[in-house]
Simulated assay, not measured.
Amino acid sequence: MFRPSLLLLTAGAAGLAVVANAASIAAPDGQQAPKTRLGNSIEQDISERDAAAARRKRGLDLREQAAKAAEARLQASVSAQQPAAATPANGAAPAEAADAQFDDLARIYQAMKPKAAAVVFEQLDMEVQMKVAQRMRDRSTAMIMAAMTPKAAAALSMALARRNSSRPQVAAAAPPAGAPRKAK
């Protein structure tokens, strides 16, 4: 009886493997291996991530549109109040009317949510930002500055610090009432 050698069996198995691989390569792409549970799970996670990213993008677009609309309303309000400030009906000085405009803007920004106000607030001129911030409550200003970009918040802080340091401090120069005066 003929006993095949181990080398002959190995060569036969290798030949069969070559034929099987060639057949799998030559098969059309439509015949893919069935998907595993892991493959299905990965595909599902990817599609959920893409859907979540699309929702976030849609939300950001809506917020941007809302911020632009709020800015347009504020600009329209300011431009509508400017002619009224030029010819005040009650005989008040134009400077007082301008101060009233900044007071109105301060009330509007305080009423807004800090994140929405910060988006619009950053777009204003630094002089307007300072005047409005000075008229707002400290807490409202802080919340808006926290929602601003770090660069814009730092710029506003520096401008406010310069404005406060350039203002003469009359209260510190005058002695308190009832304090003994030094003799010269």
Results as ranks from 00 to 15, higher is better:
139 R>N: 11
139 R>E: 13
139 R>G: 05
140 S>Q: 14
140 S>F: 14
141 T>G: 10
141 T>L: 13
142 A>V: 03
144 I>K: 03
144 I>P: 01
144 I>F: 01
145 M>L: 07
146 A>P: 02
147 A>E: 14
147 A>G: 07
149 T>E: 15
151 K>D: 12
151 K>W: 01
151 K>Y: 04
152 A>R: 07
152 A>H: 09
154 A>M: 06
154 A>C: 01
156 L>K: 00
156 L>Y: 02
156 L>T: 03
156 L>R: 00
156 L>P: 05
157 S>R: 13
157 S>F: 08
160 L>H: 04
160 L>I: 02
160 L>S: 04
161 A>L: 10
161 A>M: 13
163 R>G: 12
163 R>C: 05
164 N>H: 11
164 N>A: 15
164 N>M: 15
164 N>D: 15
165 S>N: 08
165 S>D: 13
166 S>W: 04
167 R>G: 11
167 R>N: 10
168 P>L: 14
169 Q>K: 07
169 Q>L: 06
170 V>D: 00
170 V>N: 00
170 V>P: 00
171 A>K: 09
171 A>W: 08
173 A>K: 07
173 A>N: 06
174 A>N: 11
174 A>R: 10
175 P>E: 07
175 P>A: 05
176 P>W: 00
176 P>V: 02
176 P>N: 03
177 A>M: 06
177 A>H: 04
177 A>G: 05
178 G>N: 02
180 P>G: 11
181 R>P: 12
181 R>W: 04
181 R>I: 10
182 K>D: 11
184 K>R: 12
